[in-house]
């Protein structure tokens, strides 16, 4: 049985007569422990898809117009509020794009990780020890001291590590990382991606990596979904899609990644006239 099964999901915004079709009938599956990348340009509906997985998208303004989302056999779109809350975090956990504003500025990071543990693993006795371990896992040095820090006392990279630690503290079956490195500079990007790779190897948690950068996908994801204007235009094993992209849009996206050792006068720009 698949861990996650999405079928013909449709999500609209705006007036029903003339809706913005943010997600326009997409279907995909993820197996337990699998890593998958969801690639597409800005505005293609990646974040909307990700948030819909636990019905995090407030409705209104969003309208779930069609389809089903099944997580471990349960119908997410019809789940009662209580079970939905239990699913958020321990079933599917998120890491968002902007670590600086995703942490609550008035609480210490230790307090925020503690909340995640209290909510999903109340059986744990030594919560402080668990927080220290969580911070240690994501590579924060001297975690005993750091847990009393406030978010503004940490660098962007460290903040994102804390967000990851918070997500992992819930022991999720699926981690959704929505552009986890976009707000960070290039060297920090690599560190965070290395951390995610290490986590992938250590646990059998499934990871859905959302990005608009094909460069990050190659040595990370088992499979790739390419999204364009609310639809999935291409999917398959990463190596295959990279070697032989079928859709013009995928080809354009791949060419947008600057390659090392290859002289390029200017950055490629996607030519929409050719695709539509």
């Amino acid at each position: 049985m698949a861990l996650l099964h999405v079928e013909n999901l449709g999500i609209h915004f705006g007036p029903p007569e003339d809706p913005v079709r943010a997600v326009d009938g997409i279907s995909f599956e993820m197996a337990a422990g699998e890593t998958m990348a969801l690639v597409g340009e800005s505005g293609s509906g990646k974040s909307v898809t990700a948030l819909a997985l636990t019905r995090l998208l407030a409705s209104p303004p969003a309208r779930y117009v069609s389809g089903r989302i099944e997580f471990e056999g349960r119908d997410v779109l019809r789940l009662p509020e209580r079970e939905l809350r239990a699913l958020r975090g321990s079933g599917i956990a998120y890491v968002f794009q902007e670590p600086s504003s995703s942490l609550n500025p008035v609480f210490t990071i230790g307090y925020q990780i503690r909340e995640a543990i209290d909510l999903h693993r109340p059986e744990i006795r030594d919560v402080t020890g668990e927080i220290v371990r969580a911070l240690d896992t994501v590579g924060i040095r001297e975690p005993e001291k750091r847990l009393n820090d406030y978010p503004h006392q940490l660098s962007g990279g460290m903040q994102q590590r804390v967000m990851i630690a918070m997500a992992l503290a819930c022991r999720p079956r699926l981690l959704v990382a929505d552009e986890p490195t976009t707000a960070l500079d290039v060297t920090i990007q690599k560190q965070i991606m290395d951390l995610l790779k290490a986590l992938k190897q250590q646990s059998n948690m499934a990871i859905l990596l959302i990005t608009h950068n094909f460069g990050l996908v190659a040595d990370f994801a088992d499979r790739v979904l390419v999204m364009f204007q609310g639809r999935i235009v291409e999917s398959g094993p990463t190596a295959e899609v990279l070697r032989n992209p079928q859709h013009l849009y995928t080809r354009a996206l791949i060419e947008c990644v600057p390659k090392l050792g290859q002289k390029q006068r200017r950055l490629k720009v996607i030519d929409y006239a050719g695709i539509n």
Partner: peptide
């Protein structure tokens, strides 16, 4: 409207 509200909801806070 700030991300930390969404982040709180995402770890299952009611």
């Amino acid at each position: 409207g700030l991300p930390f509200t969404l982040a709180a909801q995402a770890i299952g806070a009611g």
